[in-house]
């Protein structure tokens, strides 16, 4: 390079190349800046509560049964946005609260966001049969999806998400309680866990947070 520059014959074309490169990089910087401005208008990743960015968790194949007895896996998560909540039908307080709050939010969101599905995953496969799950989820909304199966099937999803649960069934054999995640997990159409909404839940807050997260993720494509 130095030798080329010292040779006057090559000086003009070399300077021309440099100028093009400098103009190009300047353009690139200004493009980046405008993108950043756009991002801050939408809310930067730091300012969106519950957003997992830049490291969303990609979900791999899992194997559960839905409330109609059909198999439900990774494929059913793709192409749609999903809310995923873990609970059990014998739970009298936190689960029905969350289900009715998600129903309120779903009714608000469904008008513009028809690509959203609401999924309840039972972490009590012993008591929550397919039939029970169907009656449970449709009580809140006919569109809701209930997932279950056997312990292995349920764990194929809970372990990936990190939604630990604990059955307190040693002392109490029949009416045992289950400790479960209180959060609502948000998945994008690529089946990436892009956010988590923490309890206590409120339908207006869920709706607003979901829209922020969705707009942010869509702006990354």
């Amino acid at each position: 390079m130095l030798r080329i520059l010292s040779n006057s014959k090559f000086l003009i074309p070399a300077m021309a190349i440099l100028a093009i490169f400098a103009a190009g990089s300047g353009f690139y910087i200004s493009l980046k800046q405008s993108q950043n401005q756009q991002n801050s208008a939408l809310g930067s990743s730091q300012s969106i509560e519950g957003l997992f960015w830049p490291n969303p968790k990609q979900i791999h194949e899992f194997n559960t049964l839905d409330q109609t007895g059909n198999s439900f896996g990774l494929e059913q998560m793709q192409g749609k946005w999903s809310f995923v909540f873990f609970g059990y039908t014998h739970c009298p307080d936190v689960c029905p609260i969350t289900m009715s709050v998600m129903n309120e939010s779903y009714k608000q969101l469904n008008i513009k966001h028809s690509d959203l599905q609401i999924i309840f995953v039972s972490v009590d496969p012993e008591r929550d049969t397919t039939e029970k799950l169907a009656q449970y989820v449709t009580y809140f909304n006919d569109d809701f999806i209930g997932l279950g199966g056997n312990t292995e099937m349920v764990d194929s999803l809970t372990k990936q998400i990190g939604a630990a649960y604990f059955l307190n069934n040693e002392e109490q054999k029949e009416n045992y309680l289950v400790d479960h995640s209180a959060s609502i997990f948000i998945f994008d159409p690529k089946a990436r866990m892009v956010g988590k909404l923490s309890a206590p839940h409120d339908s207006a807050k869920i709706t607003a947070q979901f829209i922020k997260i969705k707009d942010f993720i869509n702006a990354q494509y």
Binding site: G87, C91, D93, V94, C95, A164, L177, D179, H180, S181, A182, S183, S198, A199, P200
Partner: peptide
């Protein structure tokens, strides 16, 4: 009902 470390317990 309690939520401890994002886990719901009764």
């Amino acid at each position: 009902s309690k939520i401890i470390d994002e886990t719901a317990k009764m």
